[in-house]
Amino acid sequence: MKRIAATLLTAVAASILLFLLFELSPRSVAIATLGPFATPEQQTLWLQAHGYMQPPQVRYCRWLGHFLIGDFGQSRAFAAPVSSVLWPRLGHSLILVACFFAITLPVALPLGIAAGLREGSAVDRIVSAIAVATSALPPFASAVLLSALLVTRLHLVPGTSIMTEGWDWRQVVLPVLVLVLSDVGYLARITRTSMAEIMATPYIRAAILKGMSPARILFRHALRNAMITPFTIIMLQVNWAIGGVVVVEAFYSFHGIGTLLLQAALRKDLPLLEAATFVLVMIAGITQMLADIGYAFLNPRIRLS
């Protein structure tokens, strides 16, 4: 309950900040909309017509009211309601993120656990070497490499993800692969370190010397404690993967929310920029809330005190 309240408070604070950032000097809004050649009189007329001459708190309330019922206003760049542009883009991004995690987690976590379970073993060294190599490769480079291999050489998948003919799963493969490649090693390494640390604790030694089976030691004694750090990292990555992978989206012309944000910023499309940012802030707030809840589940000390 407290966490939900905290999330809501964050949302309100973020909305005020956004409002201040974008709309506190109305004249710049007018200039952005009417272009640099509009006369001051024209700007004033436009401002009056759009209600900008009212006091800021009134405008904030109206703006927020519209936001809450999903009315984000009109996008200039797309000449359409913001919501009709934003929601499909967000949907695309969410699918991308879902595919990304659906591959990364089942690969990275078991590899990290296997490596951390026996620190210094052959498995550990192989996983660590692969992890370092893949996470050293920046996404734009791996995008080029993967395209060269899978598109130009093997003709397995299309080289762009523009999806003019509607949704096409084959076009999702490359952006997802690039994301997976850039992250799977990093996550595996985090998991490995956390796991190795737990396996060296006195309470794991105590469990071994109590005669517990290796499976019980792993699943009952070690895993929950070892997952705390990777879990935190994963929750942080949800945000990054939804809104922060502009390079990957741009490379494949994937229509996600990252490129949308970029376009809106470049074209000074304020309503779209505000809406997209607000949605991303909300997503960040929600993942943080989920992270806190999950963290409390993993760590009884947080839950009970």
Partner: peptide, 13 residues
């Protein structure tokens, strides 16, 4: 076995 530093020898979770 009785371990030293019992607080560390018990699983916190």
């Amino acid at each position: 076995m009785v371990h030293q530093d019992a607080g560390l020898a018990l699983n916190p979770s």
